[in-house]
Design a protein around this nucleic acid. Structure first.
Length: 585
DNA sequence: CCGAACATGAAGTTCTGA
DNA sequence: TCAGAACTTCATGTTCGG
């Protein structure tokens, strides 16, 4: 039954490298990558499949990813135990050597194939059943023509798109197709990098051979290094150091020019934000979807007293930016002058770490107080290190003798550039305030990037704000003095919607605020109706959920395919609709 | 039922010294 | 150049009290 599939798959080496399989494994392991609007039920299965994270299954996946069959891996782990990775690998290499039939060996020879094309490779596709199971529940937003044109609009050739659609099947989601094409491109580059003498495979005897085993291990090492090099060069976007993006205020640097890809040029302008330290490959995918615009990585510590490492993908001009005034405090002491009195000399922090959604517990601050109270002067280095580690981890500040405490919500508001009491009142709990603030923009940073719009839209702008949260973008534009004409704000949390609505009324906005709860309800019809009523959007802002990308998430750091973070694809979907509307009108 | 408190690492990057 | 230490991180699940 899978014989046909294997036969077909085996024909074209370019499309079947380890890289591809690994990327496929990644995209297939979570079922719904492009979740269709109004069909939430799909996510359930993805959640179940993505939550498997035991060391056992990771080890298992690792060897599957190398191209060994499930059966072989299970047997090898059983024989060697989970702990001894080397022994498992050794056993697997022996198995695969034993299982490679003479015909297959011949196949290897004639195809100039590396590791991938032996028996284990063929078996690797024998669990195609689970693949199709996933496919069945993966609904897609795009029909065939739309997929083709979407892929082409992302810069892929018609051939690449067609082949990917043929290979992945008609039900494949857009992200699977792009992953497929990307993998093929990587493997082509990899082939091109192969030294000539390595490409032809030596004639192999059809017996169990230590040489073959050694060779295979050697090939694997070579492959691993090459892949890493390729990932470093082509796949992984390097974070800049210092993380100042295309420039920050008061930083002397040469004027940077950038040329946007044709497809990225507005209208509308768009501005997308997420955590900079996302799992590998996430920013590559985000950038690829957002018209190949290079992300701008900025740490907000260059704007205020706390760090916030974020990536921004936008098509805004980058010349003549200006900061919000007054400039916010740049050090902890400036921001929190009352702490200076209690700050010990051995705590050399001048900036806070990233403001998160949770705060340190009272018990922790009590433990720290107890650890310090035994010493009249400076505590020993061991205690200093313990205290400093915890202070950095939980952003604790000194509020008394031997006494540290987490930041108060209004202090977080101030550090993030929001008006005092922005999140206060209206039935919101203290915990929810921290949560909403921890998930929001740093206003000064975002405002600096958006400042170029002020001269371009003196009469005000129409804003589409997706995943608005507590309205960071709205606040930034308002503080820049850019009038808000029509704002469509989409935010799932009711308390956050209330905060934005309340801010809107308190700041006497003249424009029109439309708030929606669910981004997936914003379909083509609704969007077109909105855009027809006031003439389209000038700016589409959004920071999609980072839950599955953030390092703090122990449980479900599933990458861009995670339950919440996959909403990025809704940002792309909606942005694309807005762009198309603008281009037609 | 809700809110508060608490415990729970790993993945990735950057730094550092040989 | 590179291995290993050091550092950072828009969080989630469970429990408990009101």
């Amino acid at each position: 039954m899978d014989g046909d599939a294997s036969g077909v798959e085996g024909d074209n080496c370019d499309w079947n490298s380890e890289d591809e399989r690994e990327i496929d494994d990644f995209s297939l392991s979570s079922s719904s990558s492009l979740t269709p609007p109004n069909e939430e039920t799909v996510t359930g299965s993805g959640e179940a499949s993505s939550s498997a994270g035991s060391s056992n299954s990771k080890l298992f996946d690792k060897f599957i990813g190398m191209g060994f069959t499930e059966k072989m891996v299970a047997k090898a782990i059983q024989e060697n135990g989970e702990d001894n990775t080397d022994s498992i690998l050794n056993t697997l290499l022996t198995y695969s050597t034993l299982e490679t039939s003479p015909q297959e060996q011949q196949h290897i020879d004639s195809d100039n194939y590396s590791l991938d094309c032996d028996g284990s490779f063929m078996d690797g596709f024998s669990d195609v059943d689970s693949w199709s199971d996933n496919e069945e529940i993966t609904n897609t937003v795009f029909d065939e023509d739309n997929k083709l044109s979407s892929l082409m609009s992302m810069g892929y050739t018609r051939d690449e798109a067609s082949i990917a659609m043929e290979r992945c099947g008609l039900n494949a989601s857009l992200v699977e197709l792009t992953d497929f094409i990307c993998a093929a491109q990587i493997s082509k580059v990899e082939d091109a990098h192969l030294p000539v003498e390595e490409k032809p495979r030596p004639k192999l005897p059809c017996i169990v051979s230590a040489k073959l085993k050694k060779r295979k291990q050697y090939d694997y090492e070579i492959w691993k290094r090459k892949k890493q090099a390729l990932l470093d060069d082509d796949e992984t976007i390097r974070l800049p150091n210092p993380m100042i993006g295309f420039g920050v205020p008061n930083e002397s640097h040469p004027t940077i020019h950038r040329t946007l890809p044709e497809a990225a040029i507005g209208p509308p302008y768009f501005y997308y934000e997420n955590v900079a330290l996302a799992p590998k490959g996430v920013w590559t995918t985000i950038s690829r979807f957002l018209y190949d615009v290079e992300p701008e990585f900025v740490d907000s510590k260059y704007f205020c007293a706390s760090a916030r490492k974020r990536g921004y993908v936008h098509n805004l001009p980058i010349q003549n930016r200006f900061p919000l005034l007054p400039l916010p405090p740049h050090t902890i002491h400036e921001a929190l002058p009352l702490t200076r009195k209690w700050w010990p000399s051995w705590d050399e922090r001048t900036k806070l770490n990233c403001l998160q959604t949770c705060i340190g517990s009272a018990k922790l601050t009590e433990r720290i107080r107890k650890a310090l109270e035994d010493y009249d002067s400076e505590p020993p280095l061991r205690v200093q290190k313990y205290v400093l580690d915890e202070c950095r981890k939980w952003n604790l500040v000194w509020v008394g003798r031997n006494k540290v405490a987490p930041l108060e919500p209004d202090e977080v508001e101030m550090l993030l550039g929001f008006p005092r009491n922005h999140t206060r009142g209206g039935g919101i709990s203290r915990t929810d305030r921290y949560k909403s603030l921890g998930n929001s923009f740093q206003v000064d940073t975002v405002a600096y990037h958006l400042s170029v719009l002020k001269d371009m839209f003196p009469g005000g702008i129409n804003l589409l704000s997706l995943f608005s949260g507590i309205g960071g973008a709205e606040v930034a534009l308002h503080r820049l003095g850019i009038p808000l004409k029509n704002v469509v704000s989409v935010e799932i949390s009711e308390v956050n919607r209330n905060i934005v609505r309340s801010w809107w009324e308190q700041t006497n906005q003249k424009g029109n605020l439309i708030d929606l709860a669910d981004v997936q309800q914003l379909n083509g019809d609704r969007l077109e109706q909105l855009m027809n009523s006031f003439g389209g959007f000038d700016l589409v802002v959004g920071g999609s959920p980072c839950n599955n990308l953030a390092g703090s998430n122990r449980h479900h750091r599933d990458g861009l395919e995670g339950k919440e973070s996959a909403l990025f694809y809704d940002y792309f979907r909606i942005l694309d609709l807005v762009k198309n509307w603008s281009n037609v009108s």
